[in-house]
């Protein structure tokens, strides 16, 4: 599904973009060397250049890697497992932004255990409700660290 060379090139592209961002961001400031030493943009600018150069060299090496570059780093089956894990995670974080961490945690665990793990309703409900409850005890009560709350907690008068 994904060869080493494809992944190498994708990684190098990300590094290149991050390096360019560092250079662009640094140019908003002085990037030179004043009498009191380097200015605010001095380091970000040079770090960006290092990243850009390194990404180009690594990219060239990857293109020249031959047989090693063609070997698979992700088989179709592993890829499917990974996507099956990753998409619910993205959904979890998206829901947490709106409904808060407690509700999102319960929904995420409920979905993953039932749909992906194929566990029974009892085990699913136990874990999906048990973990948020335990987090509530641990964080809100014991450590008094408030977690992200949403409409449900406000409606219940808990936030």
């Amino acid at each position: 599904m994904l060869s080493r060379m494809q992944l190498e090139l994708a990684a190098v592209a990300v590094v290149f973009v991050l390096g360019s961002l560092a250079v662009i961001g640094a140019l908003e400031h002085e990037i030179g060397w004043a009498s009191d030493g380097p200015q605010a943009g001095y380091f970000p600018f040079r770090l960006g250049i290092i990243l850009i150069v390194a990404s180009l060299v690594i990219g060239a090496q990857a293109l020249a890697s031959g047989a090693r570059g063609r070997e698979l780093v992700l088989s179709r089956e592993s890829g499917r497992r990974m996507i099956g894990f990753f998409l619910p995670l993205v959904g979890y974080v998206a829901i947490a932004q709106v409904l808060g961490l407690y509700v999102a945690t319960a929904l995420y665990l409920g979905f993953v255990l039932r749909a992906m793990g194929r566990h029974g309703w009892q085990a699913t409900a136990g874990v999906a409700l048990g973990v948020p409850l335990a987090s509530w005890m641990l964080f809100e009560v014991w450590f008094t660290v408030p977690l992200l709350k949403g409409p449900l907690e406000r409606w219940l008068g808990l936030a």
């Binding site: 979890y92 995420y108 993953v112 255990l113 874990v127």
Partner: peptide, 9 residues
């Protein structure tokens, strides 16, 4: 399939 998702949370 139970431990993994709990660790994620």
């Amino acid at each position: 399939t139970i431990i993994g998702p709990v660790i994620v949370t």
